[in-house]
Structure formats: structure tokens, C-alpha cells
Design a binder for these strands. Structure first.
Length: 803
DNA sequence: AGCACGCCGACT
DNA sequence: GTCGGCGTGCTC
């Protein structure tokens, strides 16, 4: 008998290994590595992934696999290996790695139920237990617990009257639609038609139709074409037509017409940049390219034509974009070029839609996937290229287990497939640019905009000076004048602010009391719309205070500026201006993001006001002014990348202006105009910024000169968190070389979240082959306390958020 | 992670 | 003498 090795769906240290199961005869052909199975595990049934087949096991009392969930493996050989690599690389459990690689719809749902045993009727049970089974022979375990019947049921179970069963359910709902099809061939249809009663005109017409199209047709389509349901029903009853539920894909882009677009003629600069990529594709050589091109320099066309080449070779392509629902224009360009060969995967899709897109890939029905981070795991078999657009974006790093960076996964996969990776950006991450400088990546530069338009003129306004001149408004005089000017000319403006809500916090003017979250060490944010104070970390909400809780003063003031407040201010100052506001609050609903953007593109508003999310992708000819209300809000975050992020964001936002015929202008308002990331964003001088920032990183021993790893320990008791972090810090220090720097224990920048104290230890290192093993040791050492005493230890090799 | 098993104190 | 509390260790 054959034996399968299975990774079970229990994310825990002790179960992070394979378990062996016998393969029952009837499943022998189905059970291959990569299929999901149901297996008995202790007293319950759970899901697992088959990772290997063998004929012998050290374990003697093997159980049998209960069932297979797939007929075709959901993980191919490459992805199974990639999962192992990911486990090693990010120090997570293997099951977590595999689950991260699949759409959420393929995750198991568990249900615990009580069922009457065969031959038992509910009258046999004790009275209290009977009404539990009022609606049949089974009841959910949850309601049994609610009704306090657990003990009773245990007795009944001992008497053999009930059983407790564990059900593993697939979440997948394949969408099915009723289709109508002729049961006989065309000739028999003609025959049947003759036999119909002469009055049955409609039925005759229907048969005419099917004689011409002998394929299944959706009932809805028939009705839409003027056939009546009655006629269809009659023919089904007569046994001439049949109905069948057929699986269809949910298509998020259904009904959208994409006009076929042919490749554009490349500029000389583009030709020069694409040549090495094409030859790498041709020679099946793995190489990483950094495509460094200013906004509007035509990177996308290079992506498109590289993919074209890959498709001609019969291979496949993955394109990662930061968060695709944000860039409908990007999707459009891919669909226009490659039509139905494109699958799209992003967070705006429902679980079912994501699953359907994933299936198209699995069934080889598409050749290109355009998607956010997790699309890097697309189950293609012949990858010919991987493209990561806006390579510097932090959303490529997953901030929960497995904590992977899509760039690393991309390079790993591309190496196995011997194909190129193209990292594109106008403001590359320091890490990538440094690698390109060192020759690890190949640098391809597109220094000019395609239309030869100069980059927009940037004015940096010192808001301290405005204040001194008596301007207390949130708009500098210069920005306000320009706003009025655009309004008069009928041109559009984008105003950018990186904060949501109304005002960031509420403070008492008499005693200085600031309202904090009771569970987290963080100030509550005022949300005007719901008149609530909200915590962005734990979701805690409370009404806005009327009097100060500390000193009962009534002088409560709102500080900081949010998008809502700017909007109000705008309507006050420029009542005739039509404003569209875009932030998490107004784009929460599916599709609203795209709707708002389209409305702006069609000229439904003069001013687009928004947060981060409007920084990229929007490309409208009528935008001639971009205003950044406060450039320094993120500069002061406790994060060594804050300068880099500020520079990238400002450059990105500035690029929104004047992309077409009309020249653009940018106004950046700041309280620290002398800071190099703001000053150099003003002149759009990436190279000088790179030099400056590299010096700072070298000095403080940060990436790309050093790698970093972060250990965060959290516990309800402060002392426990501190002492564990201290022990860990000491242990790690003892295991590393003298070159490594171990900082800690220190309180996290957010020292308490959801009533848990947080301490951390930061490790900076260049080469420490022992580090991963040591960190695993740490997890092992504290495993019991993690399981029982509510201790949490999180490890992040290459963290992007140091909080 | 669940869950059973087992050992201890409080009770019909 | 039994019920139910939680600590311990296993799940192929």
C-alpha cells in the first residue's frame, strides 16, 4: 500500500512536520503531491497538503486519508519547493507558506457537529437534548454549547445515541448557471420539430435556433433573445431540450469592452532599454534588471513588448503592481494589448472572483497575470518573465506570516525558471539601486519623458514663513492663488494629504490632555463623519468628548489636518469649486475607487483631494497643478526609511502634473524645507538623493549596507515582555559575530497594542549564517510560554515597518 | 491549535 | 464515592 506524507492545517511548532497516511485504493490515482486532502488527526478531521508519496513509514499505526479535495494538484512541484524555501526564508510554518500561495477560497472551513447515530430517533434522547435536533438529525456544536448541553451529549454519546463529527468544508463555491441544450443531434431536432403541434410556434422557433447553434446556451440569453421561458419549459418536459448547470467564471471585467491596441513604436531610449531584456528572454537567462525611468518615460510599453516576446515563445508572464484596484488604467493597457490572455488579481475582488482568476491560470487559459503581491505565486509552469512595477513600494512586503517580500520570491522563482525579472521605478528603493550600482542587477535607464515634456516646476513653500506672515490657513498664499487660477481656466488640481479622518487628535486647551486609546498607546483619531474617536490599531471607538475628561474644561480643540477638514475648508474658501475626496472612508465600497477616478477624469470635478492612494496611476491630461499640503508628516516617523519614503512620495505625486500637452506645476508645503528629501524631491534629483541617503544609511548601519532583523515580543504584563526580550537579546548577541549590532531590549515605537506591551530587539548584520538557526532556537525555547502564557514572539527578517 | 487524559479538590 | 477544574502531552 502506498503512503502519503501530509502537512496538516495546524499552524503550530509541534505539528510543523509531515504526517504519514495510508492511501486507500480508491484514491490511489488522485493522491499525488500538491493535492489537498482530508485526514483524521487525533479525534478530528482536518485539511492537509500531500507533499510526497512513499512506500514505507517509520510510523506503524497509520490512518487512512479520508478524502481528496482536488482532482488536480493545487500546488505543482515548483510551488511545493517554493513553499519550503519560503518557510526557511521567512521562518514561518510550512502550512502557512502553502496557504499564502493559494487563493483564500481554497482554505478549509471546519465545522463541528452533533449527529444522531444510525437508527436513533430523537425521541430516544433525554428530554433536554431533543429540541436541539428539532430541524433534523444534526445540530451544530456551537448551539449545543450555548444551551449548556455538552455534558448531556457526552452521556448520550456514551450510550451510542449521538456522534460528534468534524466536517471539513471547502470554501469554494463554483458559480453555476442554468444552460439549455438540445438532447438530440440536428437531424433529430428537425424530426421533433415536425411532430410538434401546429400551434407551437414559439417552440418551433426555439428548435430552429438550436438547429443552428447546437451548443448549450444560458437560459437568460434565450430569454433576452425573445424566447419565452414557457416554450423552453415545454420542450424540456417533452424531452427534446435538456437543462444543465454549467460552471462559469465570475468575470470582474465582464461587459467591459477593451479595444485592441497594437504595440507602439519605441523611442530610441526605449529600444536601448528593452534590448537586454529581450535577449535575456531569448537566451533563457536569469537576470535581474532595474528599469529606472522617470514618470511618463514609457516603462509600461517596455513591459508590454517584453511580454509580447515571452508569449511568442509560448511562455507566461507575471506582472506585479502595488495595489491594482488603484491603477485601473494599468489593467486597461494590459487587457487592450493581450485581451483574454490576461487574468487580474487584486484585493478589490471577492474571494470567489479571485479563485476564478486563479483557476484560469491553473487551467492554462491565460498567459499573463497582473496582480498585487500574492500574484507572485501564480501557478504558471513556463514563466518567461516577472515584472515588478513601482519596485520601491512597501506593499510588496507582507507584514504577517509568512513575512515575505515579493521581490525576493520573484527572483527566486525567476532563477528556477531561468527567466528575467524587471524591477521598474522612477524612484528605486535604495536596496535595488545599490545592487544595480554593484552590478548585481543590470541598470536600464530611461532618463527622459516620452513626450519630451519637461518635468513640472516645483515650488517649495515654507509654512513657518507663512505663519510668520500671519497666514494661519492650511493653504499657502501661493498655492491658493494657483488654485484660483486653475479654477478660472477650467484646469484640474490634485491636492494631496497623507492623513485620513478629520483632525488627527483632540486636545484640551486648558490642561493639554490628549485622548488616548485605552488599549493601545496611541492617540485616538477624530472622525467627523461618524462623530467618533477611533483607534487605527484596535478599532476602539468612543464618542467625541464635550468636556475634558481630565480637568472638565470645555475648551476642547481639534489638531492636525485630515482630508475631511481640508474639504470643508475648500468649500468655505472656494464655494464654486467642485471637489472629489478620496480616502479610505470614501473608497471603502467595491468599485468606488474607480468610479471616483473616472468621474474626475471626465471633468466632473475641479479638485481631487486625497491621501496616499491618489499618488500613483492617475494620468489625466487636464491636471496642471499638484499641491502637497504637508510634506513632512511622515518625515518624523520613527523609521529609517522615512526620508526615502518622503522623497519617493513627493516625486511620485509631482509626476501627476503636466503629463500631457499642458505644462504642470507643483506646490509642496512644508515646515522643514531644508530637509534633503524635500529639497531634492523639489528638483527631482534622484541621484543626489541616493548619494545623500546612502551616506546616512552607512553611518547608521542600515540597509543596504547592513541587513536587519526584528524580534518583537508582546505580553499582557510589561515585566514579562521586558524580561523575555532581554533574554532573547542576550542570547542572540552571544550567537552572533562581532560585526553584528544587536539593539535592545527597547520598547516598540508603539509600546502597547490591544492591551499587550511590546518590546523589541533589532539586529543589524552583514553576514551571519547562524542567525536563522538562532532565531529558530529562540522560538523553540519560548514555545511553551507562547502556547500557554500568551507570550507572542514575532520575527521579521527584513522588516519594512519597525513598529 | 484542539483535544483527551489524568490528577486533584468540592460536592450530592 | 462522583463531578468538574485545569495542567500535560499528543496528533501519522
Amino acid at each position: 500500500m502506498k503512503i502519503a506524507s501530509v502537512i496538516v492545517d495546524v499552524p503550530a511548532k509541534q505539528t510543523d512536520k509531515t504526517f504519514d497516511y495510508l492511501i486507500p485504493d480508491n484514491l490511489e490515482s488522485v493522491i499525488v503531491p500538491g493535492v489537498r486532502v482530508n485526514v483524521p488527526f487525533g479525534p478530528r478531521n482536518i485539511q492537509g497538503f500531500v507533499t510526497g508519496i512513499k512506500t514505507e513509514s517509520e510510523f506503524k499505526k497509520l490512518k487512512e486519508i479520508a478524502g481528496a479535495l482536488d482532482l488536480k494538484p493545487v500546488l505543482n512541484k515548483e510551488l511545493l519547493l517554493l513553499g519550503e524555501w519560503l518557510t526557511e526564508h521567512s521562518l514561518c510554518y510550512r502550512i502557512s507558506a502553502y496557504q499564502a500561495m493559494l487563493p483564500a477560497a481554497l482554505k478549509a472551513k471546519y465545522q463541528k457537529k452533533v449527529v444522531l447515530t444510525e437508527g436513533t430517533s430523537k425521541e430516544d434522547l433525554e428530554e433536554e437534548a431533543r429540541n436541539l435536533f428539532s430541524s433534523g438529525s444534526e445540530a451544530s456544536w456551537e448551539t449545543a454549547v450555548e444551551q449548556n448541553l455538552v455534558n448531556l451529549l457526552k452521556r448520550e454519546s456514551d450510550r451510542g445515541l449521538v456522534d460528534v463529527v468534524y466536517e471539513v468544508k471547502d470554501r469554494v463555491r463554483r458559480k453555476k448557471l442554468k444552460h439549455i441544450l438540445p438532447l438530440g443531434d440536428t437531424d433529430s431536432l428537425a424530426e421533433q420539430k415536425e411532430r410538434l403541434s401546429p400551434q407551437a410556434k414559439a417552440q418551433r422557433r426555439l428548435l430552429d435556433f438550436f438547429q443552428e447553434h447546437p451548443a448549450p446556451v444560458e437560459l437568460k440569453t434565450l430569454v433576452a433573445n425573445g424566447f419565452s421561458q414557457a416554450a423552453v419549459k415545454a420542450l424540456i418536459k417533452a424531452g427534446i431540450l435538456g437543462e444543465q448547470d454549467m460552471e462559469v467564471y465570475r468575470d470582474p471585467y465582464a461587459g467591459r469592452e477593451f479595444q485592441r491596441q497594437e504595440p507602439l513604436v519605441l523611442t530610441e531610449a526605449q529600444e536601448k532599454a528593452i534590448a537586454p531584456i529581450l535577449s535575456s528572454i531569448e537566451e533563457e537567462r536569469h537576470e535581474v534588471f532595474l528599469l529606472y525611468g522617470v514618470t511618463g518615460s514609457g516603462k509600461t510599453e517596455i513591459y508590454l513588448q517584453s511580454i509580447q516576446q515571452v508569449l511568442e515563445k509560448g511562455e507566461e508572464a507575471i506582472v506585479l503592481v502595488p495595489e491594482i484596484s488603484l491603477t485601473p488604467q494599468m489593467v486597461k493597457r494590459f487587457k487592450e494589448r493581450f485581451g483574454d490572455l490576461v487574468a487580474v488579481m487584486h484585493s478589490g475582488l471577492s474571494a470567489g472572483e479571485k479563485y476564478d482568476e486563479w483557476r484560469k491560470i491553473q487551467r492554462r487559459e491565460v498567459k499573463v497575470v497582473v496582480g498585487a503581491r500574492s500574484a507572485i505565486f501564480a501557478p504558471f509552469k513556463n514563466l518567461g518573465i516577472i515584472i515588478i512595477d513601482e519596485e520601491h513600494e512597501t506593499s510588496y512586503k507582507q507584514e504577517e506570516n509568512p513575512r515575505y517580500h515579493a521581490r525576493d520570491v520573484a527572483i527566486h522563482r525567476a532563477a528556477t525558471h531561468r527567466c528575467p525579472v524587471v524591477l521598474g521605478s522612477a524612484t528605486p528603493s535604495l536596496e535595488s539601486f545599490a545592487r544595480a550600482q554593484k552590478g548585481v542587477y543590470t541598470l536600464l535607464a530611461l532618463p527622459k519623458r516620452m513626450n519630451e515634456q519637461p518635468l513640472p516646476e516645483v515650488e517649495i513653500v515654507d509654512m513657518r514663513e507663512e505663519m510668520r506672515q500671519g497666514n494661519r490657513s492650511m493653504f499657502s498664499r501661493s498655492l491658493f492663488e494657483k488654485l484660483e487660477d486653475r479654477l478660472a481656466k477650467g484646469e484640474q488640481t490634485v491636492l494631496f494629504l497623507n492623513k485620513r479622518g478629520h483632525s488627527s487628535f483632540v486636545m484640551c486647551r486648558d490642561c493639554g490632555y490628549v485622548i488616548n486609546c485605552p488599549n493601545c498607546e496611541i492617540t485616538l483619531t477624530y472622525h467627523r463623519y461618524q462623530e467618533q474617536m477611533k483607534c487605527h490599531y484596535c478599532g476602539y471607538e468612543e464618542p467625541v468628548p464635550v468636556i475634558c475628561p481630565e480637568c472638565t474644561s470645555e475648551h476642547i480643540r481639534y489638531f492636525g489636518t485630515g482630508t475631511q477638514k481640508v474639504e470643508e475648508e475648500l468649500t468655505k474658501l472656494l464655494p464654486e469649486a467642485r471637489v472629489i475626496r478620496m480616502d479610505v472612508d470614501t473608497t471603502g465600497k467595491k468599485g468606488s475607487h474607480e468610479r471616483l477616478l473616472n468621474a474626475f477624469g471626465e471633468g466632473a470635478a475641479d479638485i481631487l483631494l486625497g491621501t496616499q492612494m491618489i499618488a500613483k496611476g492617475l494620468d489625466f491630461p487636464n491636471i496642471t497643478l499638484v499641491g502637497v499640503l504637508s510634506a513632512d508628516t511622515m518625515l518624523h516617523l520613527p523609521d529609517f526609511r522615512s526620508s526615502e519614503k518622503t522623497f519617493q512620495l513627493l516625486t511620485q505625486v509631482s509626476g501627476r502634473a503636466g503629463r500631457h500637452e499642458l505644462p504642470g506645476e507643483v506646490v509642496i508645503q512644508t515646515y522643514t524645507p531644508e530637509h534633503y528629501s524635500i529639497e531634492l524631491a523639489g528638483t527631482q534629483d534622484y541621484d543626489r538623493f541616493y548619494q545623500q541617503e546612502m551616506m546616512a544609511r552607512k553611518l547608521h548601519k542600515y540597509p543596504p549596507f547592513y541587513y536587519i532583523a526584528l524580534v518583537t515580543v508582546s505580553h499582557e504584563e510589561l515585566m514579562k515582555a521586558v524580561s523575555v526580550t532581554e533574554k532573547i537579546t542576550r542570547y542572540i548577541s552571544s550567537r552572533l559575530s562581532k560585526e553584528a549590532v544587536v539593539l535592545g531590549p527597547v520598547a516598540s515605537p508603539i509600546p502597547r497594542i490591544k492591551n499587550r506591551y511590546r518590546y523589541q530587539c533589532l539586529i543589524k548584520y552583514k553576514k551571519e549564517p547562524e542567525l536563522r538557526a538562532s532565531l529558530r532556537q529562540v522560538l523553540d525555547r519560548y514555545q511553551q510560554e507562547t502556547a500557554k502564557e500568551g507570550l507572542q514572539i514575532s520575527l521579521d527578517l527584513n522588516p519594512y515597518i519597525l513598529m
